[in-house]
């Protein structure tokens, strides 16, 4: 069984985000970039399945500019067997990402596609669901526990009401939540070995996918700084003040 794990290059979670002066986006020049933390959990889970003898091969995939290979190298250093880089400088939105992954499914025929439940840059939380629809596969999102039993995956999901356990037939799309596992520390010799593992590169054209942006970003701006509050003497004054602001 093959597992395909999608990883995304994002600004590291420790970095204080700066909006570019012209409002065209978020500054990423010289900023520390990392693998999306939820994707790291997805990679870890795939590796654990392989180590438990449930899978034969783990393939990491990313979509993005040349530098995204750094994140593939991280996945390879963690233990993925090989990687696929769909190289593009275009802004890739969830539907495009799902179409690309669907095209790779046709090539690789994995039994499981694992992703982080969302990426911490745009927080869309859409790619896994869209991919399941395009591939016409079952989906198990927000996984906090995963057991593979033959052709079925038993997945405990974190839902609003608590935990829900479902069984999905494989092949399936599974998205990882925070508590699924704690990713391992990469060993130095594995960083070196990762350099020698293969990365296949495709363009969007190779896969017959266009980077059609269905959502257009008009402007990016930092949240307005919070204004100082006012003090009111009585409840009546409070009600008046709230009404003036249309809050009551």
């Amino acid at each position: 069984m093959k597992i395909l794990v999608a990883v995304k290059r994002v600004v590291d979670f420790n970095v204080r985000i700066q909006v570019k002066a012209d409002g065209s986006g978020v500054a990423s020049d010289g900023v520390k970039m990392s693998m999306n933390p939820f994707d790291e959990i997805a990679v870890e889970e795939a590796l654990r399945l392989k180590e438990a003898g449930k899978a034969e091969e783990v393939i990491a995939i990313t979509i993005g500019p040349k530098a995204s290979q750094e994140q593939l190298r991280t996945a390879l250093a963690m233990g993925a067997d090989r990687a696929i880089h769909v190289e593009t400088d275009e802004d890739i939105q969830p539907l495009t990402a799902a179409r690309i992954l669907n095209a790779i499914i046709d090539k690789e025929e994995p039994k499981i596609v694992m992703l982080g439940k969302q990426a911490i840059d745009d927080d869309n939380n859409q790619t896994a669901q869209m991919l399941a629809a395009l591939a016409n596969w079952p989906q198990a999102t927000f996984a906090s526990q995963l057991e593979v039993d033959g052709d079925v995956a038993n997945v405990t999901r974190e839902v609003d009401a608590g935990l829900e356990t479902i069984a999905v037939d494989l092949p399936a799309v599974i998205s990882a939540d925070l508590r699924l596992n704690e990713p391992r520390y990469v060993k130095l010799p594995d960083i070196m070995k990762a350099k020698r593992k293969p990365i296949d590169t495709f363009t969007l054209a190779d896969l017959g996918v266009e980077a059609a942006a269905s959502v257009k970003v008009l402007k990016t701006s930092a949240p307005a700084t919070r204004q100082a509050g006012i003090k009111v003497e009585t409840v009546d004054e409070l009600v008046v003040a709230l009404k003036e602001r249309g809050l009551f």
Partner: peptide, 9 residues
Amino acid sequence: DIVQGVVDE
């Protein structure tokens, strides 16, 4: 890439 990987990990 190795320099970056070493520092990151």
